[in-house]
Design a protein around this nucleic acid. Structure first.
Lengths: 150, 150
DNA sequence: GATTTTTACTTCAGACCTGAAATATTTTTA
DNA sequence: TAAAAATATTTCAGGTCTGAAGTAAAAATC
């Protein structure tokens, strides 16, 4: 294996360590301060970003989790009254999910705190660092790595 | 919220998306090609890196997962014959975990493939990019972000 | 040295997550 | 249009993960 390959592996391990640390921090704050969980928050955030009702499969794609998982998450959020399922016009296979008024209010509270937590977790990066890292992350998995076999 | 705060939040979302994509890719390859899972691989990798037997709590800290989780993972790996538990000299509370010969051979096979997969997933980054990103990640969560309240 | 506190691990309930199989519906194809 | 293929979702088994509670042993304190 090349030196570059080994360097990329070390980078991956560091990336994983950083993201696990931040995820753990967010999870703890959501639990302690708001009696909720990160996956639930992620669903609400996706719905809020979309600004409209989403299909189950759109949620699944956006959050990069399986369909079965979304079913369970939406079940729980629905039981909590934060989201509602509704029929999709013209396609009886699909189900739409939207925020309830309560869900929207709940999310707005969380979102403010969440942004502050994340900003603090990445507090070592100034505006220039952030720009540079966005560029590198975009490049990391962009085009040009499709050739070759598994 | 400041622009910097919002930029950091966008960075976090992109970071998460990239790492989830790579994790999903690795998980699928481990399952399809080697009938195993990423958490199991992670445990073997930690033991291999350490080069010696590790305590359960060391594994837990290294992998950033809970103690209870490590108990279950080691249970399963032990049942597969890939790791073994042994008593810790001089401390009857602790349990050491080590790779078996079979576990080491299994891991060596996986590790080669794993390095290639990761390198390919980060194929858009050259040596200079990797160095720069390592630096930024180190800075992101390093010192200097401990002040202020929750 | 006895009591208290801390440490190491396991167990447990409950949530999360995956991939495969099942169900229902829509679209495509013959 | 009937059959086949594709799509959207749910259900399921099994693994992963957390935090809290429980057990046992070691260390600190009195």
């Amino acid at each position: 294996m090349s030196d570059l390959s080994k360097a990329r592996l070390r980078l991956w391990l560091r990336l994983l360590k950083v993201s696990r640390r931040i995820e753990g921090d967010l999870r703890e704050r959501l639990r302690e301060g708001h009696r909720t969980t990160l996956p639930r928050f992620d669903v609400l955030a996706a719905l809020s970003r979309a600004g409209t009702a989403m299909r189950m499969s759109d949620l699944s794609g956006e959050l990069r989790v399986s369909n079965g998982n979304v079913t369970g998450l939406v079940d729980r959020l629905e039981a909590e009254g934060l989201v509602a399922r509704l029929a999709a016009e013209g396609d009886r296979r699909a189900t739409l999910v939207r925020l309830t008024a309560e869900g929207r209010a709940h999310f707005d509270t969380l979102a403010t705190a969440h942004e502050a937590w994340v900003s603090r977790a990445l507090g070592g990066l100034n505006a220039e660092d952030v720009t540079e890292m966005m560029r590198l992350l975009g490049r990391a998995t962009g085009e040009g790595n499709e050739r070759g076999a598994a």
